[in-house]
Design a binder for these strands. Structure first.
Lengths: 362, 362
DNA sequence: TGACGTAGTTGCAACGTTACATAAAGAGTA
DNA sequence: TACTCTTTATGTAACGTTGCAACTACGTCA
């Protein structure tokens, strides 16, 4: 059954300590024994028991990532970022998703605490500030991606959602739209509320006579976008919005497809703006204007922040890394892209880019 | 730092054994002590050290899932199926993805072996038959999803890809198409080869004068579908196919969007058939006819199979569960759905369903 | 020659948990 | 009273690993 260090030692004709040294301080092992141990390991197919090592060492190079909805493209990109950031430094990463279920989120936290991971990145669902602070006090470092949970003890990677909403609003106003609709769940999700607030700010600042209606969707899936679009189509034509701003690209794509099938011209009749700039935005039937949220980079930043915290214990310096919003203009708001601007590309300022022929791969 | 069973025991005024019994054989603990222990646990926020338990017990209720491409919708559905199957029985599940990189696949296997998981479900990339058989001999049960790796030692959950390809081919022939194109990577991936083989069989059986061309795509992403479609558009009009069969829905959706933007009518000019029937197929700009592969159910089946193997050790009965193909007809091949048929719904026969107004949510 | 240094090797204890054997305290019975 | 039986509690050893102190062997140098 379990081949252990002793079996390897016996076969190689050395002591268990030497086998351990072979792994942990190879410079202490003479070349003859080094070879013998290597051969024995290969012959037995020995793989060290991580539990025992962890028990002895008190810790292991293991981190965890808890996502809201692993199957949304945004989170896939995010997780790749985290993974890449920590893999380079030799850490193992365990995934899990809370499936937007607060109970599951807590049980995943328990599981990872039982496994004594050294740190975790979490995209939180519930209000778990206390739980996370307790974890940190027990030596499990945490980094939150998303709203900061009002803790001054936990590092976070956040995005300027108000700025993103404002960019979207300004853009729609600029192309002459005056009946705006927001598709999201601003009552339950802080991010949605911020995006809506940003758009509303833009409207107020414009001094124009512009209305903003809100259509509540549940989960930010394509399905929800379809439902919302049908709700819009069922309105008398005079009351329909001339532009929608969706809380993410999935909702936007769903709505877009319904509009197209109903014979509505995009963007002439209804302009559509999404959020996130996931792959599907660029690849939609009408390429989507959207607020770019750099999921991969945010994941990388979270992973790096986590490693920094782990590697300097005692240093309780809380970082709060803010990513800036950036608008990517495509055909769903400006049918024929008019001109190109060299825009501000720094990630900390709200900015804008035009993409021509965006359906083509780069 | 680490609160242990001893701290709890000290606070509760009992021995460490009693605390252990509290968790593992509560019927042995008297009600007075039971309460005292419970209080102490709550006060200290004690969470048992899984590594130590695992070291002592020799195993833990932990399983692993290794995916090819966690961010493809098909795999998301699959993983939810596995997760649901094992969660009900109290098992923890660790995810990881190999990102279609054979080296990463192997390193993930090492990691899970080091953590002494009791079993794993894997969607394999490389030819890792030997590695998996070795794992089984060391007591880590394996279930493969996908081609059986020609092992008579490892259980598998497979799908009738030849049958799926045949269904697609028959359907396209039936609606009068005679210039078929297959979009996939049949040279590298067994599944793609089988799907193409199935379509070719259908063509040969039909006795019609029908051509089948193959356009090779790399990774089965939307991006690859876009590239392939552009390749088709660059062909002289007379040489273009009048139908395409894509190796998965992502490729089909990418191609579909390019065609639409180029002013090509779907399905009049080019009929499109996808594979998998993921969410996006139904939600595409033109809802997609596709071969349904029940990802969620296949994941569940794999999870259940794994649990069965673990729970009856010694029983080396290898199961090979085959899922049957099923065609879902939507607008991308028949613009106006003509009729409804009550078709064979069993999962083990190739069959067909018509969906009317498929863009609407159920 | 003896003291010292260095490279290589090893025995031992400990990490936190749990299964098992054993003990203690009543409770019931003859 | 002496015994058995039951219920509840505890001491001990072991799981596989590794850091440390201790030890050996072999040079080197005064």
């Amino acid at each position: 059954m379990g081949t252990s260090v002793k079996d390897v030692a016996a076969l190689a004709g050395v002591s268990a300590s030497t086998v351990s040294n072979y792994f942990n301080r190879p410079e202490l092992v003479g070349s003859a024994n080094r070879k013998r141990v290597a051969d024995a390991i290969a012959e037995l197919g020995y793989v060290p028991n991580e539990s025992a090592r962890q028990l002895r060492a008190g810790s292991s190079k293991t981190l965890a990532l808890i996502l809201l909805d692993a199957w949304l493209p945004f989170f896939s990109d995010l997780s790749r970022g985290v993974e890449d950031a920590v893999r380079d430094h030799g850490w193992s990463l365990f995934f899990s998703n809370s499936n937007r279920d607060p109970a599951r989120e807590l049980s995943n936290l328990d599981m990872f605490e039982a496994h004594r991971v050294q740190g975790l990145v979490i995209v939180p669902q519930g209000l778990i500030k206390e739980r996370l602070e307790k974890l940190q006090n027990r030596g499990i470092e945490c980094v939150v991606v998303g709203p900061t949970q009002d803790s001054n003890q936990i590092s976070a990677v956040t995005f300027d959602d108000v700025g993103g909403g404002r960019l979207a609003g300004e853009h729609l106003l600029e192309i002459g739209r005056r009946r705006l609709a927001f598709l999201g769940n601003p009552h339950n999700v802080v991010q949605s509320a911020d995006r809506l607030a940003g758009m509303t700010q833009a409207v107020e600042a414009s001094g124009t006579d512009t209305t903003v209606m809100t259509i509540t969707v549940k989960n930010l899936t394509v399905e929800d976008g379809i439902e919302a679009a049908e709700q819009i189509l069922s309105m008398p034509e005079a009351e329909r919005p001339d532009a929608i701003f969706a809380a993410n690209d999935m909702v936007a794509v769903g709505a877009l497809n319904v509009f197209l099938r109903a014979g509505i011209s995009i963007p002439e009749d209804i302009a559509v703006v999404g959020y996130d700039d996931v792959q599907y935005a660029r690849q939609a039937a009408v390429p989507l204007t959207t607020v770019r949220q750099p999921a991969y980079e945010m994941g990388r930043a979270a992973g790096q922040q986590l490693l920094e915290q782990i590697e300097r214990p005692g240093n309780r310096e809380v970082q709060n890394r803010l990513f800036g919003a950036h608008l990517v203009v495509r055909d769903s708001t400006i049918g024929h892209v008019p001109a190109r601007t060299e825009s501000d590309q720094t990630s900390h300022a709200a900015s804008r880019t035009f993409e021509e022929n965006p359906a083509l791969p780069a």
